[in-house]
């Protein structure tokens, strides 16, 4: 592994979260579209399938991915459109991680008990 610094990890996480979200969105669109086959169609079966444990935990990962990708996207916009952004890219990345964690707190407090509670 190349021993890059903040910028490399910011890029790698941005790419991983981006690809993961694109795949999630595709899956999401497919299973929501199944509702057009009516109440007796495959929609409810799929929804039941998604209530299994791995998908519940995956939902937390999806939220983390969305929040990180959004904040890091703002970091990239600042770097691309201002003259000073590049200079503070590392600091801004730590800010992105901190904001992601802060936004993650209500997710942990509110969502995880629901995920675990209604097994």
């Amino acid at each position: 592994m190349y021993r890059g610094r903040e910028g490399q990890w910011a890029f790698l996480l941005h790419r991983i979260s981006g690809v993961a979200l694109a795949l999630y969105l595709l899956l999401h669109v497919i299973d929501i579209s199944l509702v057009m086959y009516g109440p007796d169609g495959p929609f409810n079966a799929f929804l039941g399938f998604y209530h299994q444990w791995p998908f519940r935990i995956g939902l937390v990962a999806v939220m983390a991915g969305v929040v990180y990708h959004a904040f890091n996207g703002l970091r990239i916009i600042i770097m691309d459109f201002t003259g000073w952004g590049v200079k503070y890219q590392a600091v801004m990345w730590y800010g992105v991680l901190a904001l992601t964690a802060i936004v993650g707190v209500p997710v942990l407090v509110k969502v995880i008990p629901e995920i675990i509670g209604r097994a």
Binding site: G4, G7, Q8, F11, M79, D80, Q89
Partner: peptide, 9 residues
């Protein structure tokens, strides 16, 4: 360019 900054480092 995806601004990974490895070049600068």
């Amino acid at each position: 360019c995806r601004t990974a900054y490895n070049c600068t480092e």
